[in-house]
């Protein structure tokens, strides 16, 4: 007798629903004492192994949804998006934006023209001069210029002197490059 002939009755026996019927009948005969669930589970396992059964579409969708959710959670916990979820980053961004807006407002609106000295002498009169008559403003600016003039003139002289020194250096370098004998002295 061939091997598959030996297996055929067992396949039928395992997959035959009468197993469950017989087990339930035996349980009933004993007054529902004990449990046949373990045996039925083994029978169902054997049935599934022999003839796998696909779950329903709804069950599959549920499984995939669970998988996607789990993967998203892991990705968010380890990827760059996790940084965006940091509370301090959100708070810090808001504070930074507020600070930038405040700086812009201060820069655009300029210094407070209210009363009170800012510096000494004529320089401090500039704010008050904004509300004074034009003659006072002109006099104030001229006084400020008198204070600032020496330093500004010295700065311009330094700047011109710096350019002169730079040119002198270039001329010397050009002369040396044009006549190599000056580099090493007399031969």
């Amino acid at each position: 007798m061939p091997a598959h002939d030996d297996n055929t009755p067992r396949e039928t026996a395992v997959n035959d629903p009468k197993w469950e019927v017989a087990l339930r009948a035996g349980q009933q005969a004993e007054g529902h004492a004990g449990s046949v669930e373990d045996e039925l589970a083994i029978v169902n396992l054997l049935r599934h192994a022999r003839a796998p059964q696909m779950p329903s579409e709804a069950a599959l969708d549920s499984v995939w949804s669970d998988l996607d959710a789990e993967l998203d959670e892991q990705r968010a916990a380890t990827g760059w998006r996790s940084w965006l979820r940091r509370p301090w980053l959100l708070g810090g961004s808001a504070a930074l934006a507020a600070a930038a807006a405040a700086v812009l407002v201060v820069v655009v609106s300029g210094p407070d023209p209210g009363p009170g000295p800012r510096g000494g002498g004529a320089m401090a009169q500039g704010d008050g001069a904004q509300v004074s008559d034009p003659g006072v403003m002109a006099a104030t600016i001229e006084a400020q210029f008198a204070m600032l003039e020496p330093g500004a003139r010295a700065a311009v002289e330094r700047s011109v002197e710096g350019e002169r020194n730079s040119l002198r250096g270039q001329l010397v370098a050009s002369a040396i490059a044009a006549d190599g004998r000056t580099m090493g002295g007399a031969p």
Partner: peptide, 23 residues
Amino acid sequence: DDDALTAYEEALEMNRVLLEREL
């Protein structure tokens, strides 16, 4: 006068910048 005031304010603003730089 309006243009004059604008010119004065411009000059004062420059001097204010210079003062702040000096400080």
